[in-house]
Design a binder for these strands. Structure first.
Lengths: 240, 240
DNA sequence: AAGTGGTCTAGACCACTCC
DNA sequence: GAGTGGTCTAGACCACTTG
């Protein structure tokens, strides 16, 4: 029945957050926190306020909640390069274990936007390859790639679905990458996307939208990658 | 292919969100929505559930809430280049009106991390220039720049505080930029940062951490930029 | 003063995991 | 079945903006 009678310039959940950070810093990675209900009682706040604080620390990548299990101190974020490199090789270079799982690999008719981006006619068949990206057996990203079927007719036979698409294109199909463009923004995942990433609702995600071309300027692929904002960061190299 | 279990029920706030999107799409930019309490009643849900849906649409950049005024349909996100270019010029090139406001311009002693990054000794004086970045008179970013005082002793005299630091360095101080590095991640702003950006709590932000060097490889500046995730996206050019 | 969004409480039930 | 996090309700007060 506490009333926040006192005028607080700082929201209560932020005060709780800063106190919770102190607790988190005393614990090691992977350590379980007390249950929300217990923490709320200890801090003298409602469970809702406690959850606000926890949610912020989850979004910041410091905590990790698993339904039915508890809340745990998270491991540091994985930093990936923002460049035309293989996911597999980039992750290995940082000492992590990469993996992929195919969600779907279909041929769909290109809508107007996709057709324009891939330089095909609307309605032309396009490969849609959707894969969940794992790092150390944790899902961290959902990658959807679109390629022209007419341009890569042998893709289904040549590509090992859980292998590196980048390597397949450059190696087996003789594609030479030219300049590409990548857009980065934050979004909230749909329930389907959140489930595939084993993330809870309301978690900020990093959405990368990539368009690559070959050295002659012809479109190769359009990629929509959704990464868990709590688990992943990106590194870009700036050239003068 | 792995089977992903299907969620039995979609969260109510997501159902509300999708219905709210339909409403938003019928309205023009800048249009006011009905008050939360009215919307909640219309949709037959509690105000909390209504706010979850609204919060997601705010994070996605489709809505915009102003305390005491109402909730409005937002304008599209501003896309900035992820490159060594002037904020002023980049924004002008996209048809927006850039502006800056100095929050503080101090000399502080370098801590160990900063000293290492700027190649000075710990305790050495370092400029700390914190500015709010505006686009079309709306605050969209908070930029904190650190430079060695010893390296740029005349900075206070030369720099117009609301002008382009990039232009000042390259033009008046004869600095030649070499390769730089930029880290991108999502974070939740502190109350102070949220207030400076006139954003509400709990809004996902894009944090950019930049380190630049001159053509000889000596550190020029360390920049911490916090951008409103609901208002800004970034574009990077990928080179093979 | 009225009305808006922002924060907070207390309590309930649901979905998932482990015993 | 017990315990965890996830969702949802109803109601209250706070802080801000405008008439």
């Amino acid at each position: 029945m506490r009333r926040y009678s006192r005028r607080v310039s700082v929201p209560l959940h932020y005060v709780v957050k800063t106190r919770l950070v102190e607790l988190v810093e005393q614990l090691g990675e992977g350590t379980a926190l007390p249950p929300e209900r217990v923490l709320a009682k200890d801090f003298g706040v409602s469970r809702w306020t406690m959850r606000q604080a926890i949610r912020e620390l989850i979004a910041d990548g410091r905590l990790r909640a698993r339904q039915g299990q508890g809340t745990f101190v998270a491991t540091p974020k994985i930093v990936q390069p923002l460049a035309l490199v293989s996911y597999t090789e980039a992750l290995r270079a940082q000492g992590h274990t990469p993996a992929r799982e195919v969600v779907r690999f279909d041929e769909i008719p290109a809508d107007d936007v996709l057709a324009e981006q891939l330089a095909v006619a609307p309605g032309d068949p396009v490969f849609e390859l959707e894969r969940v990206l794992f790092a150390d057996e944790q899902p961290i990203g959902l990658e959807t790639t679109y390629l022209s079927v007419a341009r890569f007719p042998s893709l289904r036979e040549v590509l090992e679905p859980t292998g590196s698409l980048y390597r397949c294109l450059t190696g087996q199909l003789g594609v030479e990458f030219g300049e590409g463009e990548e857009l980065v923004e934050t979004v909230i995942a749909t329930p389907r996307e959140a489930e595939l990433l084993k993330a809870t609702q309301q978690l900020p995600m990093l959405l990368l939208h990539r368009r690559t071309r070959d050295s002659a300027g012809h479109p190769i692929e359009v990629v929509r990658s959704l990464y868990r904002g709590d688990r992943v960061g990106f590194r870009a190299t700036l050239r003068p």
